[in-house]
Design a protein around this nucleic acid. Sequence first.
DNA 1: GCAAAAGTGTTATCGCTACACCCATGT
DNA 2: ACATGGGTGTAGCGATAACACTTTTGC
Lengths: 234, 234
Amino acid sequence: MNTSNTTVEYLKQEKFLVAVDCIIFGFDSENIKLLLFKRRVEPLKGALSLIGSFIKNDLNLNDSAKMVLEESTGLKNIFLKELRTYSDITRDPGNRVISVAHYALIRINELDIENVEEHDAHWYDFNDIPDLIIDHKQMVDDAINRLRDEARREPICFNLLPKEFTIPQLQAIYECFYQKKLDSRNFRKKIVSFDILNKTTRKDKTSSKKGAFLYVFNKRKFKTFIAKGNRFQL
Amino acid sequence: MNTSNTTVEYLKQEKFLVAVDCIIFGFDSENIKLLLFKRRVEPLKGALSLIGSFIKNDLNLNDSAKMVLEESTGLKNIFLKELRTYSDITRDPGNRVISVAHYALIRINELDIENVEEHDAHWYDFNDIPDLIIDHKQMVDDAINRLRDEARREPICFNLLPKEFTIPQLQAIYECFYQKKLDSRNFRKKIVSFDILNKTTRKDKTSSKKGAFLYVFNKRKFKTFIAKGNRFQL
DNA sequence: GCAAAAGTGTTATCGCTACACCCATGT
DNA sequence: ACATGGGTGTAGCGATAACACTTTTGC
């Protein structure tokens, strides 16, 4: 095995600018939202865009995206996944840039407001996204489709809710994704049958006089659920 | 909008080597196979690896992967999708290289044998993959998981079979993925009920005296199927 | 006491699973 | 004539979908 720092073969190759862009999703009890920014550098300064950054030599792509998220939202430990690359030669008018889009789910209530305002960031309803620079609109569309699909099969929506949440809150997210009302009896029956939530004794009273019991997602129970050969499917 | 060639901001940024690697799947009527290559350049020359290449300035990632596939298999119009990026700083001992893995499904019977032998390529059973260089084994594992998952929900397995194929051939692929025998009556019932195949009047007699009718995947029918709100699920 | 959301059970329907025999043909 | 894989139908079961009323409590 070759252990020198840079192999001769590699020196001949062209190098590229590489960036990460983040599609940040939130949920405000009404709708799925996306966090968009006013771009601060040329080209296209001032236009609406996703938040992103060129990567540096000391971080991999995932960590680069994490850093971007932390800087723009003040949040650590965000749910984050790679979406796909965008590499058309002329996609960026400034120069060729290969961008790796990532999508993130955050809890709006934990957001650092100051940070966000400092970055000229605003939430937009996910089914009413304005035009964005370059191919960012495409990235958003792709991310929404991916998320819609993934939400059906993986327990990821919990990342949009506070650690403790109610069943009706969870249902509301799925109703946004599917764009239709769900039967609350059937929804509750299904999610409870999975046995992946812990019911607390506390109630959330922000949306009704009666209050709804708070639940917590239990990762251990979920693993057991999967180990038994079950499939999360909503 | 800025229309100059390279923006000043961009000039300060670090650039990176970017490569594509291809996980090539085939099916030989018995098992899912993977095409692996003996590496020809340092570092790690002679070791087993996926086929790949540094990208050039004139092609996007998808087209770069297509070119790699064409050069190594002699095939055009291959089913090809991006898997994910691999970007750990130290993943390549030669230098930092960001690799974008792609997976491809090809029809083994159409393969250009000469081309393949020229490239020191050999087929390996997908559940008995030897050690590969760098993180290529990880790429393969990720690709297999992705494919297993995608095959359930998207009609992609047809890309592993000749244009005309039999129902038992198709079933065999799914039996490989699930690693269990399926009931032929139920399998046939399900796939026929989708109404996305055209039955021909011809038969394939390579695996039985009686012969099995040949079918063709019909993209138009599939679109209708989806438009009606159905879901492909096997 | 009333408005508003939370919570609860039952029935009909549909789709999936399990299962066994006849058919066509090459040797 | 026999061995081999191709092709077909049905019945039982489990899961989903449809549906309406009671409970709690802040105002």
